[in-house]
């Protein structure tokens, strides 16, 4: 029988994979954004699991809002990437350092 703990563990694993992915793909901003989506989905799994456990729909509301905000974030993020690519012909995160204080 499936328990809530398994789902919590699953979401933890997916979340960690997301973090690792962010660390690995620093050369590619789109990939970073995708890994962030992965992390968000892990959090949402948690919400839904506990919503099921407590028989309370407010968790669904939270997921609903997370999904909506994540969609907004993806749209804005991708638009920014397009602009960046246009300007620097690259989407490597490390290359954008014009705001950085000179050491």
């Amino acid at each position: 029988m499936i328990e809530v703990t398994y789902l919590v563990l699953l979401s933890c694993v997916v979340f960690v994979i997301g973090i690792v992915g962010v660390g690995l793909n620093r050369n590619n901003l789109v990939a970073i954004l995708m890994n962030i989506e992965l992390m968000l989905i892990a959090v949402n799994i948690n919400f839904i699991a506990f919503s099921n456990y407590h028989q309370n729909l407010e968790g669904h509301i939270a997921v609903f809002f997370v999904l909506a905000i994540a969609a907004a974030e993806a749209a804005i993020g991708l638009a920014i990437f397009v602009k960046l690519y246009e300007r620097y012909h690259s989407i490597q995160a490390d290359k954008f350092s014009s705001l950085k204080e000179l050491a």
Binding site: I19, I32, D94
Partner: peptide, 12 residues
């Protein structure tokens, strides 16, 4: 710092 690697370490 601007280094994603450091941010990820911070998360962990």
């Amino acid at each position: 710092s601007g280094y994603i690697y450091e941010y990820v370490l911070g998360l962990f």
